[in-house]
Amino acid sequence: MVTLSINGQRVEVEQDTTVLEAAATIGIKIPTFCHDPRLKPHGSCRICVVEVNGGKNLPTACVTPVYEGMEVETEGEEVVTARKEILDLLLADHPLECLTCEKAGECTLQDLCYQYGIERTSYDGERNHYEIDYSNDFYYSDQNKCIKCGKCVMVCDQLQETHAIGFAERGFETHIATPMERGLSESTCVSCGNCVSVCPVDALAPKKKTKFRYWETEKVRTTCSYCGVGCQMDLLVKDNKVVEVQPAEGVNDRMLCVKGKFAFDFLSHPNRLKMPLIRKDGRLQEASWEEAYDTIIGKINSIKEENGPGAFAGLTSARCSTEDNYMMQKFMRAAIGTNSVDHCARL
């Protein structure tokens, strides 16, 4: 164990803990853009710089390991000056379109500029201009807004292992691009959207089908309904509609695939069944629940009387909940009296 002090508070942590992690254990939040505990240390954005033992240079909290007797100041004068300067520099090449920006409300750059009181950039220099890449079906890449934290590239390389995007050019012209700048639709991208989920700004963002502001939504934690991995995710709900899906901590380690991330349209699809249907005159026609129940019960009773419980079978579903499945087999076994329950586990 190592003992250090952060903003005058003593804290004891394991060896090899970073300053960022140590600070978090006592509730001290240090701002970050490029940090993600799942990724290899990157240290590119420099926003998490802190002062250590009054030293001259400002190391970044995200990659600096603690040591015995370390004294850290996370909001000292030098640190705040550096952070403000970094935000100023980022804004100098970032369009101030916050009023209409889709990311507003969930934008780390916006949040930190608010926190450190940066209203606008003090520089009036050159800006980069990029074409927005809309070629992917689910998300766009707007490099004009990119702050080059590199998380998207690292997620694609280190976690998703698809290697669809990387850094292009260097220096001030550095930006995120597909090989040969051929566009997302021509890349190896599998539209998993894991880059989108980590982007701190509106540089990689989902193509919204519904207009919404993040603060208008409620997040509901749930389990993905596609394959058997059981990814954890948050449904963002506005006005009784799921408008976005974000990955959550769980077996999936905050990763999703294209289906989990983007394929939720079916929920609000107009073709959803809304009323019971009963076949009358060879045609399925809308009916009330009472009518439907009566029809089913009537049929069950008559078949049972004539043929006994052996004439019934039920197919439960690998798609429905555990509780739904339990109730169906109970219905077949306890109420009808047959063990003829199966489902498509084998398909």
Binding site: G43, S44, C45, R46, I47, A82, E85, I86, L89, L90, A92, D93, Y123, G125, E126, I147, K148, G150, F167, E169, R170, G171, F172, E173, T174
Partner: peptide, 21 residues
């Protein structure tokens, strides 16, 4: 330096550019 900055970290990538300007 501006020409040769790798573009990874903010101060060097954007800061040297502004100094040059």
């Amino acid at each position: 330096t501006v020409e040769e900055s790798c573009g990874k970290c903010t101060p060097c990538r954007d800061g040297t550019k502004r100094m040059l300007e």
